[in-house]
């Protein structure tokens, strides 16, 4: 059964590219453009994993993750934060918000797929 990934990313090009590349690698992909939409989608149709950009409009990635992890219905879904390179404070905060893992942008697909695979087994 194909695994479903919810990709939360506000940049249109990055969203399009990453979702297509994930689909090519055998995943079903749902997308959300901000943190609020991410929470809605995760509740309406729970994915197997969330890829969460952190700097998002409306509700940012940290807050969205915190809310997903506070909610018993979504708590178990692993979240990988996508952070900008070299921002240690971002990573610390991602971990504090409850992210299971993080990866830096620009995404190196092979590395990201490995992290996804680790969390989905």
């Amino acid at each position: 059964m194909t695994k479903k990934i919810l990709l939360v990313e506000d940049n249109e090009m990055n969203r399009d590219m990453l979702s297509r590349r994930l689909e090519r690698n055998g995943f079903t992909v749902a997308v959300a453009v901000d943190g609020a939409e991410a929470i809605e989608r995760a509740l309406a149709d729970p994915p197997d994993l969330v890829l969460m950009d952190l700097s998002l409009p409306v509700v940012d990635g940290w807050e969205a993750t915190r809310r997903l992890k506070d909610d018993t219905r979504t708590r178990a879904i692993p979240v990988i934060a996508l952070t900008a390179h070299a921002m240690e404070s971002d990573r610390t905060r991602a971990r504090e918000a409850g992210c299971d893992d993080f990866d830096t942008k620009p995404v190196e697909l092979a590395r990201l797929l490995e992290k996804i695979a680790r969390l989905l087994t």
Binding site: N11, M13, N14, M17, R20, A84, H85, P106
Partner: peptide, 18 residues
């Protein structure tokens, strides 16, 4: 700025790989 620079670069590298 570095974040802003990386975002389009992300797209360039990613689409080239695809």
């Amino acid at each position: 700025m570095s974040h802003e620079l990386r975002t389009p670069l992300n797209a360039i590298i990613g689409y080239a790989e695809m």
